[in-house]
C-alpha cells in the first residue's frame, strides 16, 4: 500500500495513487494537486492526515468525540472509474492561470464519458475569459503591479453506487484586497449521464424542498454562534448550492451570502436517509 522516498510518500490502491510531497501541505491524487495537510515523520513513521488519505483510498470515516476521540472506518465500494486530472498553467507578470479539471476514463459508455469530459473541459472557459479581459483592462489602465489570477480546482466528494459528486471551486483575483471564489456542486449518474444541477432536480415533483430543508439548515446555522450572520437566515434559495458527501446532502452558502468572507462557505449536512421518501426514485439508492 505504501512506498517511501526521501522527498515523498506514495500510497497506492485500486485506481488511486496519492503522493504526499514533503512539507508543503499539498498532495496529488492521480496527478490532481490538492491541499491535504502536511504529513510529518514521528518515530520513523509517516503520519498522514487521516480523512484525506483514507477517503481517497475508499473508506468512509465517522468521527466520534465522546466518550473519547475515535474514528470508525467503513470500506466503501468506489465506482469503477478512473478520475484523472488535466492541468493547464500559465504565468506571466500580469496573469497567473492554474486550472485543474477532471477527466474520466473507464466508464462503460464512452458517449456518456465524452459528454461528461466535454463539460469538465469547457466549464473553465467563462472564468478564464473574465481573467483575460481583466488583464487587458489592467494593462490598458497602467495597473501592471498586480497580476490577474484564476485558480480553478475541484474535489471528489462522492464516488459510489453509480453516482459521482464533485465540488468545483473557481478563484478569481481581478484586483483589490482579495479575490473571490465561486463554488459549483455537481452530481451525475454515471450509468445514464444525467446530471442533477439544481436542488429541485433531487426531489419528486410537488415537493416543497425549500420548506423541508430550511428548518434544519436554520437550526445548524443558528448553532454556529452569535454574531456570525451578516443577515438573518430565514430559508434557503430554491437554487441553493449542494453536493453529496458520504450519507449526506450538503447544502452550502456562498461567500457573503449570509456570513463574512472570513467564514468561508458555511456547510450544512442533512442525512439523505431523512429525505428518502421525497427523493426522485433514481436517487433513492443514495439514501440506503
Amino acid at each position: 500500500m505504501t512506498a517511501y522516498d526521501p522527498a515523498r510518500v506514495i500510497v497506492a490502491g485500486p485506481n488511486r495513487r496519492i503522493i504526499f510531497s514533503s512539507g508543503n501541505g499539498l498532495a496529488t491524487v492521480n496527478g490532481h494537486e490538492v491541499r491535504s495537510g502536511a504529513p510529518f515523520l514521528e518515530n520513523d513513521q509517516f503520519m498522514v492526515p487521516a480523512r484525506f488519505c483514507l477517503e481517497n483510498m475508499g473508506y468512509r470515516l465517522t468521527w466520534h468525540s465522546s466518550p473519547s476521540y475515535s474514528i470508525d472506518l467503513v470500506p466503501i465500494e468506489l465506482n469503477n472509474v478512473v478520475i484523472g486530472t488535466i492541468r493547464e498553467r500559465q504565468e506571466t507578470s500580469t496573469l497567473i492561470i492554474d486550472v485543474q479539471y477532471p477527466r474520466l476514463s473507464g466508464l462503460e459508455s464512452t458517449d456518456i464519458q465524452e459528454a461528461m469530459n466535454s463539460y469538465f473541459a469547457s466549464r473553465p472557459n467563462a472564468t478564464l475569459q473574465q481573467a483575460y479581459q481583466n488583464e487587458k483592462e489592467m494593462i490598458a489602465g497602467g495597473f501592471t503591479q498586480w497580476a490577474t489570477e484564476a485558480a480553478l480546482n475541484y474535489t471528489v466528494e462522492y464516488n459510489e453506487k453509480g453516482f459521482l459528486s464533485l465540488l468545483f471551486e473557481d478563484y478569481l483575483y481581478l484586483g483589490g484586497v482579495h479575490g473571490n471564489t465561486c463554488r459549483t456542486g455537481y452530481l451525475a449518474d454515471l450509468k445514464t449521464g444525467k446530471t442533477y444541477s439544481t436542488l429541485k432536480d433531487l426531489f419528486k415533483d410537488g415537493t416543497d424542498y425549500v420548506a423541508l430543508l430550511s428548518p434544519e439548515v436554520k437550526k445548524q446555522f443558528d448553532g454556529m454562534g452569535e454574531g456570525l450572520a451578516l443577515s438573518p437566515f430565514e430559508q434557503i434559495r430554491p437554487d441553493q448550492g449542494f453536493y453529496i458527501k458520504g450519507n449526506d446532502l450538503v447544502i452550502y452558502f456562498d461567500l457573503y451570502e449570509h456570513t463574512p468572507y472570513a467564514a468561508g462557505f458555511p456547510e450544512f449536512h442533512i442525512p439523505l436517509s431523512t429525505l428518502s421518501s421525497v427523493l426522485v426514485p433514481e436517487l433513492a439508492v443514495l439514501a440506503e
Binding site: P39, A50, Y69
Partner: peptide, 23 residues
C-alpha cells in the same frame, strides 16, 4: 480507531483539529 466497529491497534493523533495516522 475501529474498522466497522472492530477495534484496531493503530492509534491516531488529534493535532490542532486534524487527525493524523501512522501510514
Amino acid at each position: 480507531m475501529t474498522l466497522q466497529g472492530t477495534p484496531l491497534t493503530t492509534k491516531g493523533e488529534l493535532i490542532d483539529g486534524t487527525t493524523f495516522v501512522p501510514l
